[in-house]
């Protein structure tokens, strides 16, 4: 189990690195698709079928939007020369990485090994969701009952994003 997940994650890292260094924007977008679709298999292995269904559809729609944008503009990657600004950016990135690695090492002391119980709330949610909401799918029960505010906020964000896209992409005003 852990070995399979490690191989998939390594595959995702290779795909991500290729997406950042590709010379063609279309191949960069498709390499980002590698990462997304590997994530679907990871979710299936981790016993999360809800997430797998959502991720496979959402990844497809994201790819459609990204490919439409890339085909509509340009496919060529910029020709970047290494100058002082670029060196400064790269060193800044490594400083950020070192700081994050420091915090990660600190945080892993608190983390249980993979496959062990990590969150204390889990037993309460697993035990009482079915009895209190009557929903056989516990994820839906948590999502629409105990954490209804999360769902409402998510729907609001989606609504705002749709309005924002409409506003940004409008050329001629509506009468």
């Amino acid at each position: 189990m852990e070995v399979t997940l490690s191989i998939l994650l390594g595959f995702m890292i290779i795909g991500a690195i290729f997406a950042l260094h590709a010379k063609d924007l279309l191949s960069a977008v498709i390499a980002a698709g590698i990462v997304g679709y590997s994530l679907v298999i990871c979710f299936l292995l981790l016993k999360a079928p809800d997430l797998a269904i959502v991720q496979v559809v959402v990844e497809t729609i994201t790819l459609i939007i990204m490919v439409a944008v890339v085909l509509d503009s340009t496919r060529e990657e910029l020709k970047v020369k290494i100058d002082t600004q670029q060196i400064f950016n790269i060193s800044l990135a490594f400083i950020f990485m070192l700081a994050l690695i420091f915090f990660f090492v600190q945080a892993t002391d608190m983390l249980n090994p993979f496959g062990q119980h990590s969150l204390r709330m889990a037993s309460a949610y697993v035990g009482e969701t079915a009895a209190k909401t009557g929903s056989a799918n516990l994820v839906t029960g948590v999502l629409f009952d105990f954490r209804g505010y999360d769902t409402l906020g998510e729907a609001t964000i989606l609504f705002t994003a749709a309005i924002g896209v409409l506003t940004i992409l409008r050329i001629k005003g509506k009468k």
Binding site: A48, L51, H117, M121, V126, V139, R147, D150, G153
Partner: peptide, 10 residues
């Protein structure tokens, strides 16, 4: 645990 799954779903 269903709670992280519900959060990731949103």
């Amino acid at each position: 645990d269903p709670l992280p799954q519900a959060m990731v779903l949103t």
